[in-house]
Design a binder for these strands. Structure first.
Length: 599
DNA sequence: CGGGAACTAAACATGC
DNA sequence: AGCATGTTTAGTTCCC
């Protein structure tokens, strides 16, 4: 009995788990897509967009190569393809073709690397591609660029052809332009990281956005020209105006051995940066994995920690290592990371509102979540040992209201807890005691003698009496929510901007279905609006909606470690009424005396 | 700073 | 006696 708690808490002492393997990847930065109204897995979009972008760029490269080949065929009689130029008497053409081939090979290698990276991310679950998924904000943009880019490509080719005719500098600008542009194309990230990735071509097909710009606009955004200086690596020649820059570019950085070598070097730089990026991403992933729960964790393994429930284990364990929870070791925007990954809030699809969320740490960092994320959240809390952000009372009430008879025995309440929340599959003595304590303490829980024993019901009137304190009509709570909103918005905006700029694939987890940041943002607005409405309207729980508080979700953007003493992650409610039938397999937890009389 | 709420821990009672 | 259930108290933390 009482020892139960002791043994449990102590056995869970070593809670922090360094999980680099496996499981669910909570790491995600969120998607830009907002307003997702369906319940599909929210994951992925940007990743898909990125991959799509890569594919588009590859297609473009192929197109370029085709055009090039055509051009070469026109220009060099007998030169069927770059690979067949060995017998050409024109040495220069040979060189050109060889260089082009080399470039193309390098480009292909880079693209393969990038693809491998993307695929690996995909395999890891960091990036999920959903075929047929509606276009995301970025995607339509990129896709829309295709014709424009092809057009631009055609212009490149033709203009290069013209230039060649006039200057006799043959393929130089053409080849380099196409190849280098292609090289930078697969990932805008590389472009951003390496603005020199483009070439000495006059046309800088830099980003889709820029591609859509007029030629003149291109000129002023040439990646190799800025602040009156040629930005060709190692050059820094001063150019009065853009025209002189172009002149300089074509004269000083035409296709020759030096430029070719420099371009190769630059490509390697890009490669290195991309590798570094991949490494950093991997590191970030490991960090997030470490800080978050992995649902695939073996039961016998020590309880994993996450930012949310990190300190939930037990008092003794927490006290033993008060600062056990690492900070979110990231950049200024870092607080987001946990946010996006953190368990999203669970709202309810069922008609019951969850009620007040837990206070303590949660409120401060709570952000509401959209009801569209329910399914994912439910799965999330079922698998992840994250403490839900709602109070015991709310959870108990939810359990009871979800039951067909609106009444449950204590043991059935226990079962509901363990069934719905992985978190409650541990430390049974603690939370069961808390459940009993709450049942007895709160007047809203009424014990009713039944034929088969005592059951617990909910006195809604009593329960509602408690709620106004929580949020309804409470300006401060609204204020909190707004502040949460305000907190998230800039982050989201920053992320969005960053992603829009860089097209950085975001980590998402399809398996867990965590809401993305974009979803979070939209959810925030949605729920905030709902909260306002809720506040304005006379609150009655008869409304199938949720209370604002319920909607509030903890975005665990804690900048400081959770107080281990608290050891309390948020409780939240998974309120989709459907009980997963596959739950039995994970019911033998520790001392979990779960009866088999599940409802 | 005080009050209220929530949580944890624990003691105790009761019935099977 | 052991266990599940139920009640109550105490201490702590957080928020308002």
């Amino acid at each position: 009995m009482m020892q139960e708690s002791g043994t449990e808490t102590k056995s869970n002492g070593s809670a922090i788990q360094n999980g680099s393997s496996g499981g669910n990847h909570l790491l995600e930065c969120g998607s830009l897509r907002e307003g997702r109204s369906n319940g599909e897995a929210p994951a992925v979009d940007v990743g898909a967009a990125d991959l799509a972008h890569v594919q588009q760029q590859q297609a473009l490269q192929v197109a370029r190569q085709l055009l090039l080949q055509q051009q070469q065929q026109q220009q060099v009689s007998g030169l069927k393809s770059p690979k067949r130029n060995d017998k050409q008497p024109a040495l220069q053409q040979q060189q050109v073709a060889t260089q082009q081939l080399a470039f193309q090979q390098q480009l292909l290698q880079m693209q393969q690397l990038q693809q491998q990276h993307l695929l690996s991310l995909q395999r890891q679950g960091l990036l999920t591609i959903q075929p047929g998924q509606p276009a995301l904000p970025l995607q339509p943009l990129a896709q829309g660029m295709i014709p424009a880019e092809l057009q631009q490509l055609w212009k490149e080719v033709t203009s290069a052809h013209t230039a060649e005719e006039t200057t006799g500098n043959n393929h130089s600008s053409l080849d380099l332009t196409t190849t280098c542009v292609s090289s930078s194309a697969p990932s805008k990230t590389s472009l951003i990281m390496n603005p020199h990735a483009s070439t000495n071509g006059q046309l800088s097909v830099h980003t889709p956005k820029r591609e859509s710009l007029s030629h003149e606009e291109h000129s002023h955004s040439h990646p190799l020209y800025g602040h009156g200086v040629c930005k060709w690596p190692g050059c820094e020649a001063v150019c009065e105006d853009f025209q002189s820059f172009l002149k300089h570019l074509n004269s000083e950085h035409a296709l020759d051995d030096r430029s070719t070598a420099q371009c190769r070097v630059q490509m390697q730089v890009v490669q290195q940066l991309e590798l570094q990026l991949a490494k950093d991403k991997e590191r970030l992933q490991a960090m997030m994995t470490h800080l978050h729960v992995k649902s695939t964790e073996p039961k016998a393994a020590p309880q994993p920690l996450n930012l949310v429930s990190s300190v939930t284990l037990s008092k003794s364990a927490s006290e033993a290592s008060p600062q056990s929870l690492p900070h979110t070791p990231t950049t200024p925007t870092a607080p987001i990371t946990p946010v996006t990954q953190g368990p999203s809030v669970i709202t309810t699809t069922s008609m019951h509102t969850v009620g007040p969320i837990r206070r303590r740490y949660s409120d401060k960092y709570n952000v509401p979540i959209s009801s569209a994320d329910i399914a994912q959240n439910q799965e999330f809390y079922k698998n992840a040992e994250v403490r839900p952000p709602f109070t015991y009372a709310s959870l108990i009430r939810q359990a009871i209201l979800e039951s067909p008879e609106k009444q449950l025995t204590l043991n059935e309440i226990y079962n509901w807890f363990t069934r719905m929340f992985a978190y409650f599959r541990r430390n049974a003595a603690t939370w069961k005691n808390a459940v009993r304590h709450n049942l007895s303490l709160h007047k809203c829980f009424v014990r009713v003698e039944n034929v088969k024993g005592a059951v617990w019901t909910v006195d809604e009137v009593e329960f509602q009496k408690r709620r106004p304190q929580k949020i309804s009509g409470n300006p401060s709570l609204i204020k909190n929510m707004q502040s949460s909103h305000a907190y998230c918005t800039p982050l989201n905006a920053a992320l969005q901007a960053s992603m829009a700029e860089n097209s950085i694939p975001l980590y998402t987890t399809a398996s867990m279905g965590n809401p993305t940041l974009g979803n979070l943002a939209s959810a925030i607005r949605e729920e905030l609006n709902g909260a306002m409405e809720h506040t304005n309207s006379n609150e009655s729980d008869s409304s199938p909606g949720r209370s604002p508080m319920q909607a509030v979700h903890p975005v665990h953007v804690k900048e400081e470690p959770l107080d281990p003493e608290e050891a309390e992650g948020p409780l939240s409610l998974v309120t989709t009424a459907n009980h997963s039938p596959d739950f039995d397999h994970d019911r033998d937890y520790e001392d979990e005396p779960v009866n088999e009389d599940m409802e």
